[in-house]
Design a protein around this nucleic acid. Structure first.
Lengths: 259, 259
DNA sequence: TTTGAAACAT
DNA sequence: ATGTTTCAAA
């Protein structure tokens, strides 16, 4: 049986909002150490990987491994019935054919209980090795979101170029072309606005910008985002969830021209 | 070559926002003394005339006269990619087939560069003599905007009547009729709210109110607006841009009934 | 009031 | 999958 009380229920709402445009159905895999999710988008270009460790919950109990096959749209609907300050408790028994969600406001003056049906979902779970990347950029999540949206007005593709001086996002379209360059920030100043680049070798890759715009819906989850590239492998876009997990996206680069 | 650095980039954003509903394509004429634009709306009833003197820029450089044929919608899109506090630098080479725009936030931690394609636009540039008008009204720009919107709810036309006592805006429609009268303000008090009237002879003219509503989108550019009339010539609606230019609109009066 | 995002319907 | 309409936030 699973019983997981999430004091910060808003975190779950944000996570589900962030992935709902990308994934329609996904398995939530629950083990003793926490909950993970891995799913590809319908076009098999993007991969979502969520980790919520047991530390996110209080208390967390999972006797036996459980796989909860969830329709994301349904979960979004149900989570809409919770308040932003609510504590959310997840509960599932074996066999896992339903998931119970309990919403409690801080005042405890109200208890909402929902139960959603689960589904059987084929899971082709691929292990993603924790590679050492050639270029790792850490920057303000809001800045990344803004840049992706700006580039989207020009083109369907955006090219990301990481050098030791900085990172350059560029796009070219019918209206014209554009680029945004962020300089590597002073290492002393370590605010969320600081851009940091760790470089093994300069890297340039091109991506479908609509996926990046979708990924950047996770901006509310974390102040910073980490972009990690190793050509020609997929890029990793990571949002840390406090100290209790992360939401990762992987996006295959466009493989048209020279790189 | 043109290279013009506009410390107050927001001014350009406001100008373009103000004219985008009226003009679809326009030539930006760049000379040593500054940048001008003159364009008629599609129905040839209204004329827009912009002057941005070289003093608006720092620095400003224009070796040879350049005509930049700009699609306003495209420019709006690109300007959306700039922040409100950004410094905007315009750059064009000869032949002028592209315009480069550089956006820099005050922090300088980011540089955005856009390049838009230019077009060939027929310019029937008419010189507008700086007439002495029969009636000149200076009033709060926000007041003018409010009055135009109010009159629009009643009718498609508004009549402006300037006498030495004040100025009266009136409209008549199916719902009923209405008027707003502003008295000439005390000459001592010279706040933006003061209404001033300089009169050679009392003047009454009727205009299509939808154009005036469009003109008044420029309200954010200046505290005051100047209306200048000489029947039966077009009215001038002028917004001063600090001490470095103006945005002028000319609107032909309606010529149906008695005047 | 205007602008952008989300939901819905085609 | 895309366009349109509605709703919410700045």
């Amino acid at each position: 049986m699973l019983e997981a009380r999430l004091p910060q229920g808003a975190v779950l709402k944000k996570i589900v909002d962030a992935i709902k445009e990308i994934v329609s159905d996904a398995n939530f895999d629950c083990t003793d150490s926490g909950i993970t999710l891995q799913a590809m988008d319908s076009s098999h270009v993007a991969l979502v990987s969520l980790l919520l460790t047991s530390e996110a919950f209080d208390p967390y109990r999972c006797d036996r491994n459980l796989t909860l096959g969830i329709n994301i749209k349904t979960l979004v609907q149900i989570l809409k019935c919770s308040g932003n300050d609510d504590v959310i408790t997840l509960r599932a028994e074996e066999p896992a054919d339903t998931l119970a969600l309990v919403f409690e406001p801080p005042s405890l003056e109200r208890i909402s209980e929902y139960e959603m049906k689960l589904m059987d979902i084929d899971n082709e779970r691929l292990e993603i090795p924790d590679t050492a990347y050639h270029a790792e950029i850490t920057m303000a999540a809001s800045e990344f979101q803004r840049i992706c949206r700006d580039m989207q007005t020009l083109s369907e593709s955006v090219t990301i170029e990481a050098t030791k001086e900085g990172v350059k996002f560029s796009a070219e379209g019918e209206l014209g072309s554009g680029s945004v360059t962020l300089k590597q920030g002073g290492s002393i100043d370590s605010s969320a606005e600081t851009t940091t680049i760790e470089l093994v070798q300069p890297t340039t890759q091109t991506f479908s910008v609509k996926y990046l715009v979708n990924f950047s819906k996770s901006t509310s989850l974390a102040g910073q985002v980490r972009l990690a590239m190793t050509a020609p492998l997929p890029m990793l876009v990571e949002y840390k969830i406090s100290d209790c997990g992360h939401l990762r996206f992987f996006l295959a680069p466009k493989i048209d021209d020279e790189e």
